[in-house]
């Protein structure tokens, strides 16, 4: 047993593409009391497999236990705790803010800084799309708060090891 302070772990799980596999994995997390911060399920280059990327805040011990419990699952092919490795992680954000004629150009400037895309605009709102790592998305949202966020949708992370 080593460190006892919780930190973010990105757990990448390659699973067989079987019925019930999402609830099996999600159920394992809830049953054993591991709290999921983010979850992304997606197809892979091979139709027989899916990839789940789970973000959890856990101590090193707990993360280790999560990985070992996941490895026991029949449908799980491979599990990686990407925390320690060199990882590319991206989330996607869609966000709608209040924007009259006055705010529009200011918002477009912010957009340029963050390399976000304006997706839609009406006389009173604007919608943006942004991909990036967790802290970049957090920072973008923070800047938009003063304008008034109407609604937003944010995915969990998708992650791969570099190299």
């Amino acid at each position: 047993m080593v460190k006892n302070t919780p930190e973010t772990h990105i757990i990448s799980i390659l699973t067989k593409n079987q019925p019930g596999v999402l609830s099996r994995i999600a159920g394992l997390f809830s049953r054993r009391g591991y709290n999921i911060d983010g979850l992304t399920v997606c197809a892979t280059e091979n139709d027989d497999f899916s990839r789940m990327t789970v973000t959890v805040c856990a101590t090193a011990n707990t993360a280790n236990q999560i990985v070992e419990q996941l490895k026991k699952q029949i449908d799980v092919v491979k599990v990686l705790d990407l925390n320690s490795g060199d990882v590319a992680l991206r989330e996607l954000l869609l966000i709608k803010v209040k924007a009259g004629a006055k705010e529009r150009s200011e918002l477009c400037d912010i957009c340029t800084i963050f390399k976000a895309k304006a997706l839609d605009t009406t006389t009173s709102t604007m919608m943006f799309e942004l991909t990036g790592n967790t802290s970049k998305i957090d920072a973008f949202i923070k800047v938009l708060v003063p304008y008034g966020i109407i609604e937003m949708a944010r995915t969990g992370g998708a992650a791969l090891e570099r190299g």
Partner: peptide, 11 residues
């Protein structure tokens, strides 16, 4: 026989 039992409840 179960790797998840290693270090689970006792070091």
């Amino acid at each position: 026989v179960d790797k998840a039992e290693i270090d689970k409840n006792v070091p």
